[in-house]
Design a protein around this nucleic acid. Structure first.
Lengths: 335, 335
DNA sequence: TTGAAAGCGCTACCAC
DNA sequence: GTGGTAGCGCTTTCAA
């Protein structure tokens, strides 16, 4: 691997000059520039990012912290974040949190010791505001941006790029009411998930809008993750208990599919006996039968949004603390 | 951010001593060690990986190159790779290739200029062996391991950790024959995908084993990706053409679900009219109805396998060029 | 317009 | 057992 020195020697100039030519900054004699450039080409020189990073004091990369990359929405986000970052010349470090608070703190500490440019916090779990204070101080001191993606953390002062989930839930309720699928049950992580709480609030607001009284029997807070199995179990138990819902809003497409499976296994028809509506807009939702009605997720907007906020923060200007992107309802067969 | 110097000053020793204490190497007077350690704690010192990396000449990270992170198997792989790497103190850089050959070369070049420890090549696309020669030479020169994950690339001399897909296809054929689901169609990327070719070879071998003649009408090579839409379209067209298959082996769970949707939309029952069998073992397969019969993927074995090969390569010993892990059939309802 | 040189934070070699 | 010091590759003053 050739270094600046090699190029300098080959071109018969100093390393400073080579560096300047490469950075395209300050004035260089045309023929010097020419010579340097051809040496660079001849040697196949590429700058060593390690040297640059050490000098600059930070590495041109961003950490993406996800709850569980196997969940479709995180995977999709990872893809779009990587694309957006690459356009800005940055790399993506992926960290799977697995819903652990401890691990969140560790990874955040890691980000500061690694001198990253920023951290994209994309987990739906409860964020222990107080416990995070020390790390956040160090992050700030090191000039590392902490930005929430896919959830709204402005209440604890973290700039966020998120969906307007409160509105989304209201849209869902409206859709189900209009089609006559009442009473409407709500299945999600609620208490233990910030995102879940917001969506739940939207659900309640939606009911209120249509003059429907809330019914605790229709509110299914699940302790586990947002995955298939939880949806299956909760739905199966609700059916067994004889809860008379005519539709279910599920907090993720995974939960929704699990719920659909349980309903089918219990001999219920979808949507005739019970309608199911998910959150996420994952691609497979269009291919299961009946096809899943869901609220889409705009992960590419998040990738771009993150970069915008990151640059705004770096530029010193205080970024808009929150930018909310709306969800659209994808009406298919299940509801 | 405190540096070695700060700690040294605080503890009243030289930076060399601090470094030694931290690395736990060579002998240190107990009380000196004590003093240094308490200074480290007092200052909240954490080593700067940039300095370490520059010194060492490489960064403790590995690039994972996937075809499309949205495909479930890649997401699952990403998760398990990250876990396995973290256990070895390495980070995971994620790159989405999007099936582009050019981009593959670029990213590989990037890996050498970044001085990574290794590259995990996990795309099912055709690898242009000749076109890659120059980069591979640079990779080798820089001591960066290139390891194929999830596919067998030994034929072009790349150490691989992969599934035994030839055997897997034979198992699939055997299963379908035994249940009477013949004739068996094969739907996948074949010509344009190395992995696809291996699986196809297994399909042919399986037919031969059971004394069944191959029938070109049953061999559906698809040009597009391994995703849902392709599965849907190909299946729909086959049905329209009146191809008389009684079952379909699909090259991915996504293709399989797409095929199932097309069959259902055409009024066919699964598996009574046509059975469908996928590749991947993705979690949602257990929750669609009918539940998908599939050949599982052991991504956690790949994470560990990659690390093993990486360390073997680093240790100078030539790693076993290929380690094949078997797939198990998960027999559910669809076939 | 160009060169010399000072570090960025770290490890390892060589003295003592 | 400990300290001094030479770089790793780069950018950026400061001089010339």
């Amino acid at each position: 691997m050739p270094t600046l020195h090699d190029v300098a020697r080959h071109a018969g100039v100093s390393i400073a000059t080579v560096s300047r030519v490469l950075r395209g900054i300050s004035s260089i004699a045309p023929d010097t520039r020419e010579r340097v450039l051809s040496s660079v080409a001849a040697l196949g020189y590429a700058p060593n990012p390690l040297g640059q990073a050490l000098r600059a004091g930070h590495i041109n990369a961003v950490a993406l912290l996800v709850g569980d990359i196997e969940q479709g929405w995180y995977a999709s986000l990872a893809r779009d974040m990587q694309v957006a970052l690459e356009e800005e010349g940055m790399d993506l470090l992926l960290f799977n949190l697995g819903h652990s608070e401890t691990r969140l703190r560790e990874v955040l500490e890691r980000a500061v010791s690694m001198r990253l440019r920023g951290v994209a916090l994309a987990t739906s779990d409860h964020i222990p505001g107080a416990a995070l204070e020390p790390v956040r101080a160090r992050l700030a001191e090191a000039g590392i941006a902490l930005i929430a993606v896919g959830r709204n953390l402005e209440e604890i002062g973290i700039p966020s790029v998120a969906h307007d989930d409160e509105q989304a839930s209201r849209i869902a309720v409206g859709h189900l009411v209009q089609r006559g699928y009442t009473p409407i049950a709500y299945m999600s992580r609620i208490r233990k998930s910030a995102t879940g709480r917001v969506r739940f609030a939207g659900y309640l607001a939606g009911l209120a809008e249509h003059g429907i009284a809330r019914d605790p029997a229709m509110e299914w807070d699940i302790a586990e993750s947002y995955r298939f199995k939880a949806g299956y179990n909760v739905m199966r138990d609700a059916i067994a208990r004889g809860v008379g819902m005519r539709s279910v809003i599920a907090g993720s497409d995974e939960l929704a599919l699990g719920a659909m499976a349980a309903a089918r296994d219990a001999g219920l028809r979808i949507p005739e006996d019970v309608a199911v509506l998910g959150f996420g807009g994952l691609e497979w939702g269009g291919y299961v039968r009946p096809a899943l009605t869901t609220l889409d997720a705009d992960t590419s907007a998040f990738g771009k949004g993150f970069c915008t906020v990151l640059k705004a923060l770096a530029g010193g200007g205080s970024a808009p603390p929150v930018s909310l992107v709306p969800r659209r309802l994808i009406a298919r067969e299940s509801a």
